[in-house]
């Protein structure tokens, strides 16, 4: 799976906002707010990765157990999937 192109990440307060570059995106599809671990996953998924690769990367980067990493990742994936930003064909 891979994050689709066409978004720019920008800091706002203590959150990260993904901003659509698309001229035709409506407001609800133009902005996604996330925390710093989500930003890490976002950047990691700019290249095609498997679910397991993302979990392993989270475990290496953060001091968390596998269950927490999977829960965080599932939450993130549901947000980007609902926004139509996840390319899951591979």
């Amino acid at each position: 799976m891979k994050i689709k192109d066409g978004f720019i990440l920008r800091k706002f307060s203590d959150k990260i906002v993904a901003v659509a570059e698309d001229d035709y995106a409506d407001n609800s599809n133009s902005f996604i707010k996330m925390n710093s671990s989500a930003e890490f996953v976002w950047n990691f998924l700019r290249q095609d990765r498997t679910y397991e690769e993302v979990v392993d990367a989270l475990l290496e980067k953060y001091d968390i157990d596998r269950q927490t990493a999977e829960n965080d990742l599932n939450g993130f994936l549901s947000v980007v999937r609902n926004a139509g930003l996840l390319d899951e064909q591979s």
Binding site: I8, R10, F12, S13, V19, A20, E21, D23, S30, F31
Partner: peptide, 22 residues
């Protein structure tokens, strides 16, 4: 502020492109 951001973006005028949003 971060709780307010999306509502601020709905309450303001800007071009609907990357430059305008940023």
């Amino acid at each position: 502020p971060d709780e307010s951001l999306f509502r601020l973006l709905s309450s303001t005028a800007y071009p609907k492109n990357a430059f305008g949003r940023l």
